[in-house]
């Protein structure tokens, strides 16, 4: 898993200029066309849009046969079927495929969204709570070390999270937590038994929550710390306790940044691969029946199925895997794009 991205904390525009730095006096001197250095840096920055274009173009190009063959049904059905691998190729809609081949991934889209939503439902309160605790309850001397504990969680590699899920979390939840949960929460739809064996939607959500929560905590902690002292003092002067000041003055102001950073966390959860692969149960062709049911996600499915897709001599299976990649790319770019807009719009002034 990626360590915390420093950009996730809103740039505080340290030199105090306006956000886009329009008034920088030196910028005029840099626009000379003879400036080789200027060209060099501009080219380097140009790599970024180029990479995005290359990703889109390459995936689109390779997914094209699948887009054509699968049509919109790709998004609405629950059938990942390579067809008869030992049959002769047949022509369907002008494309050669294995007999019986049919590709659709509603179950993956659902699994991806559901596990990410569960992750957020868990991560937001825990992340905000931990942020408040770190900002307001931990003595300043210990604050950095305590924060480090949470932030290092983001640095743990995805496979190690998967390993931990596999060795610790799954046996523990399957034996002790889910049976109890299924019993107590039976009145809530989708929370009743059977609680299955630990591999599944809820476990994926928990692991994803742990992976994205540091993002929320780090950002919210900084945002809480950036709350003007005058506001807090005003609250305290009315006789409110520190807790009441946080709950009623500090946190309500941070609603928008929280939405931004949560969207960012959503983007990260959607694309997480290895850990989910190891704990999701890798269910195929069906929607989960309750939160304990095995699922699969788009990213995990790409890793687990590329191998068998390679056995399809028509190439349609690899092309369909690429189509999943394309959808994931577009989805993550959209979520992240929106999140970044929200984060930059909602910086505490």
């Amino acid at each position: 898993m990626d360590p915390l991205l420093p950009v996730a904390t809103p740039p505080s525009n340290p030199d105090g200029g306006d956000f886009f730095g329009k008034s920088r006096s030196h910028s005029g001197g840099m626009r000379r066309s003879t400036d080789v250095f200027g060209i060099l840096v501009a080219t380097s920055a140009g790599i970024v849009p180029l990479v995005i274009l290359a990703l889109l173009a390459f995936l689109l190009y390779n997914a094209w046969p699948a887009l054509h063959f699968n049509g919109w049904g790709f998004l609405t059905g629950n059938s990942w079927n390579l067809g008869n691998q030992y049959g002769d190729l047949v022509k369907v809609r002008g494309v050669e495929v294995l007999p019986g081949a049919r590709f659709s991934i509603l179950f993956l889209i659902f699994g991806t969204l559901a596990s990410s939503v569960i992750a957020l439902v868990l991560a937001i309160p825990i992340g905000v709570g931990a942020a408040v605790f770190l900002a307001d309850a931990v003595p300043p001397r210990l604050r950095n070390s305590a924060s480090l504990l949470v932030e290092l969680l983001a640095a743990v590699p995805s496979v190690v999270f998967g390993l931990w899920g596999y060795v610790v979390l799954i046996p523990f939840t399957a034996r002790h937590v889910y049976p109890l949960l299924g019993h107590v929460l039976a009145f809530i739809p989708f929370f009743g038994p059977p609680t299955y064996n630990g591999y599944g939607l809820l476990t994926s959500g928990i692991v994803l929550a742990l992976m994205v929560v540091p993002l929320i905590t780090a950002n919210m902690r900084e945002a809480i710390a950036a709350t003007p002292a005058a506001l807090r003092e005003a609250g305290l002067s009315t006789g409110a306790t520190r807790f009441e000041v946080v709950r009623k003055i500090v946190l309500p102001r941070l609603r928008l940044p929280l939405i931004g950073v949560s969207t960012l966390a959503l983007g990260r959860a959607l694309g997480e691969t290895m850990a989910v692969l190891m704990v999701s149960g890798n269910a195929i062709n069906g929607l989960p029946h309750n939160v304990y049911s095995p699922i699969s996600t788009m990213a995990a499915f790409m890793v687990s199925q590329l191998d068998s897709a390679l056995q399809d001599p028509s190439g349609m299976a690899v092309s369909s895997i690429t189509e999943i990649g394309l959808i994931l790319l577009v989805l993550s770019m959209a979520v992240n794009g929106i999140a970044r807009l929200l984060v930059s719009r909602t910086q505490p002034r």
Binding site: W80, N81, N84, Q85, I170, Y196, N282
Partner: peptide, 29 residues
């Protein structure tokens, strides 16, 4: 039918495991 990957019928609670060790672990658990 048959193949290295087939379109498994969707049965409640049926799970997929990765690799033979995944199968053994899933059985044991």
């Amino acid at each position: 039918a048959y193949g290295t990957t087939v379109s498994w019928p969707s049965v409640p609670g049926a799970i997929g495991a990765t690799g033979n060790p995944g199968m053994v672990t899933a059985l044991a658990n």
